[in-house]
Amino acid sequence: MRPFTYEVPSSIQEATSRGGADAAFIAGGTTIVDLMKLEVMNPSRLVDVNPLPMLGIQMREDGLRIGALEKMSDVAEHPEVVANYPVISEALLQSASAQIRNMASIGGNLLQRTRCGYFRDVFTPCNKREPGTGCSAIDGENRMHAILGTSSSCIATHPSDLAVALVALDASIYIQNGAEERVMNLDDFYLVPGETPDHENQLRPGELITAVRVPRLLWARRSTYLKIRDRESYEFALTSAALALDLNGDTIRDVRIAVGGVGTKPWNLPEVRQALAGKPLKPETFAAAAKLAVNGANPLRHNGFKVDLVQRTIVRALMNLGGLA
């Protein structure tokens, strides 16, 4: 780990003024301490955001508000979250381990970095870590990599399970820059790699995520997160699906759906949603709609199985939630 100074700001405004290209914020530290040890991230100043007033989980008129410093474990078990947005709770409980969930914050979770092995290894070329050096994964080991939203520069998946659930629910984040606050849709916040895979989202240096807002959606009470992985627990997704289902008898009135493990960002599926709306609750409907999820998929040598697996994941999630499983 390279040397750094440790700084503790006393207000949100001070924190944003202390941020910058040479600095990094630290919340739970489960991403950044790891990547600093590997010398993948080398801030010369580490700004501890933990004392800042960014806590609270509240159900309000317009939806759910979660402070950026709330821990994954506390959000997962919060009664309002469990009751109103099971998909969020389930996505969190299937993330990492109990210890990591006790440490990791919601803001940090949304900003965690890819688990691409080449990104984490400073001795191999990687466009995301070092722009212009090339992508080692495209012709290398790419079993865990993305099939959607990839480019010739980078094929890394976004690893957050929570982000998949939040994108499905059309959540937004609050971003603070000095005295200024803006609200941004989370789906728009994340960027596909294109030619600039080092540019992962719309956060500018020094900006803080202060909170997440999930719109009120009464039928999100019928929602779920299905995660398929190499082992039963404590593993990143091969594929996953976040799903909310609005039923009218045996007819699907509406759905919200996004998938994980397959995209370079949490992958929202408005086409699948449209294909399901108004249709009968039947396995045949599900399979036809799930096909649309892999439109434009670009599988490589080791990750071709995800094309099929993600469709099955969607179908299974629909079966489970529709009571057909």
Partner: peptide, 9 residues
């Protein structure tokens, strides 16, 4: 609360 001391500064 249980945490990982290797990722805690």
């Amino acid at each position: 609360r249980r945490v990982l001391s290797c990722l805690t500064l």
